[in-house]
Each structure stands twice: as structure tokens, then as C-alpha cells.
């Protein structure tokens, strides 16, 4: 019995381990680097002369921008796909389309990363680059917010669609019957009855997808670039929290320099950000489920 209990508490130990390992090094980091500069500074330029500027804002901007592009792709497509699967599709279409969509979710992120690096990036340059298809020169290199965002959007489609599909299916049939009985068409029923009823759950699903996007690493490492800047142009390369964690912690790292230790501060910021989103999302979804059970 004791064995069983200790196995169950490993999950808690892991969480404590994650938090402690990062807090410890983060405290270390803030002892040698001013925390106001980290949170409120506006430049990210690590170097080895010792006068690095390590501010999280440009990274946070890149992260949120790319995630927003990804959600802009994934939410409409995923939501419409879910509505179609749940409300219109016959059992046979459903039985083929749903597993195929979930196949997209089972593909490892390294595949999406390579797709962004070798196919989508150069493809976008051919469209928007110098001498490209549209005759504009908006894009200089293959790495950009758009490259990473589009590919990440593809990755998130099945995530949004399967969560929303479950939620739409959980809306009681009596609501639909009532609306259809009053003479509404199916699309009116969906837009004015089913979707509003499912809205909290769908918001929860989108929040979970956002947390996925923020924590995604391989696609942005291979598709987004390494330039930390705050800009509104989606054709420019930008960088994210996760890519900087990777670049500060790979290679020969010296665990006393702020350039390395900053990765732990970034890590804990990322952890807190995604944890917050997850907690809110789970609470929303749970509350919504209770409403109809």
C-alpha cells in the first residue's frame, strides 16, 4: 500500500522538482542580474563580454505573436471542422475524417519543424520575397513569424477540433431539438444555440491550444529565427522564450554566468505562463461539464 501511495505522489515530486530546480537557479540569476531589467527591459542581447542585456519582453512578444498567428490558423479551421464532424457528418465520414485529423496531432514536432525550415519558409520567400510571385520584397529570409505561425497552426488544428468536437457533442440534444422544432435551420441552431452553449468549453479548448503554442519548441527553433525584437511585421524573423532557452543552454554552458542562468528564469516564466493558462482552461472546461451533467 505504501508503495502505491509513493508511486502516486511521484507526480507531485516531479512538479516540486521542476519548480525547485528552476527557482534555485533563478534566485542565483537575480543575485547577479537586476530583476527589473529582466522583466521591464526592452533589449535582448547576450554576449560574453559581461554587459549582456537580458530582457524577457522581446522574447515574450515573439512568443505571443507567433502563437497568435498559429491560433488564427487553427481556431477557425479546427472549429469549423469540429462543427461539421459533430453536426453534419454522417457516421462514415466521421469514422474516416476523425482519425485522419488526429494523425496530424500524432506527428512529432520535429517533422513540423523540418517542414517549416525546408518547405514552408522557402515557399513563403518565393511568394513574398524579392522577385517572388507577388512581386513584393517583404521577406528577406525563410525564418519569420509567419513561417512558424502557419506551421504551428497546422499542428494545432486537430488539437482544437478534437477538444471542440467533444464539447459540442456534450451539448444536450434537447437544446437542438427545441431550436429545430421552432423552425430554425441547422446552421441557425448551431450558431445561436449550440455554440453559445458550448462557448465556455470552446474557450477552454482555445486556452489549452494557446498554452501548447507558447510552450512549443521545435517549430520555432527551426522556423522563427533568432532575432529578438518587438515589431509588428509578420514577415520578419523573431525569437521566442523557448528558442532562447535552447540556445542559452546548449553547447558548453557555464553555470555561473548570467547568460546561462537566464535560461532558468525564462523557463520558470514559461512554466508559470502555461500553468496559469492550463489551470484557467481546466477550471472553465470542468465547470462547463458540470453544467450539463
Amino acid at each position: 500500500m505504501g508503495l502505491l501511495i509513493s508511486a502516486a505522489s511521484i507526480a507531485i515530486l516531479v512538479t516540486i522538482g521542476i519548480v525547485l530546480s528552476m527557482v534555485f537557479e533563478t534566485v542565483h540569476f537575480f543575485r547577479i542580474y537586476d530583476w527589473t531589467n529582466f522583466f521591464f527591459g526592452s533589449t535582448w542581447s547576450p554576449n560574453f563580454r559581461g554587459d549582456s542585456e537580458l530582457a524577457i519582453l522581446p522574447l515574450l512578444w515573439g512568443t505571443l505573436y507567433i502563437s497568435a498567428v498559429a491560433l488564427l490558423v487553427a481556431v477557425p479551421v479546427g472549429l469549423f471542422a469540429a462543427v461539421y464532424l459533430a453536426e453534419f457528418a454522417g457516421p462514415r465520414v466521421r469514422a474516416t475524417a476523425k482519425p485522419l485529423l488526429e494523425l496530424l496531432a500524432g506527428i512529432p514536432t520535429i517533422v513540423y519543424g523540418l517542414f517549416a525550415l525546408i518547405t514552408v519558409g522557402p515557399g513563403l520567400v518565393q511568394l513574398f520575397g524579392e522577385g517572388g510571385f507577388f512581386g513584393v520584397s517583404w521577406m528577406a529570409g525563410a525564418s519569420s513569424v509567419l513561417t512558424a505561425g502557419l506551421v504551428m497552426g497546422i499542428m494545432l488544428i486537430p488539437f482544437v477540433s478534437s477538444l471542440s468536437d467533444d464539447i459540442i457533442n456534450a451539448v444536450p440534444q434537447s437544446l437542438r431539438d427545441g431550436s429545430l422544432g421552432l423552425g430554425a435551420t441547422r446552421s441557425e441552431t448551431i450558431r445561436q444555440v449550440v455554440l453559445p452553449a458550448a462557448l465556455p468549453g470552446i474557450v477552454g479548448a482555445i486556452l489549452l491550444a494557446a498554452s501548447r503554442a507558447i510552450g512549443e519548441t521545435m517549430i520555432v527553433v527551426m522556423g522563427a529565427g533568432a532575432v529578438a525584437k518587438i515589431s509588428g511585421n509578420p514577415f520578419e524573423a523573431m525569437t521566442t522564450i523557448t528558442t532562447r532557452i535552447v540556445s542559452q543552454l546548449t553547447g558548453d554552458s557555464d553555470f555561473t554566468s548570467p547568460e546561462t542562468l537566464v535560461a532558468f528564469a525564462l523557463g520558470i516564466s514559461l512554466f508559470v505562463l502555461t500553468l496559469g493558462l492550463n489551470l484557467v482552461a481546466l477550471a472553465v472546461v470542468r465547470k462547463y461539464r458540470e453544467q450539463y451533467e
Binding site: V14, G215, T242, G267, L270
Partner: peptide, 11 residues
Amino acid sequence: AAVPSIVFGIL
């Protein structure tokens, strides 16, 4: 289950 995988790498 929803913690970004990179965080496990830091751990």
C-alpha cells in the same frame, strides 16, 4: 501532462 516539454529538459 500539459507542461511544455522543454521545461522537462530544464529539469
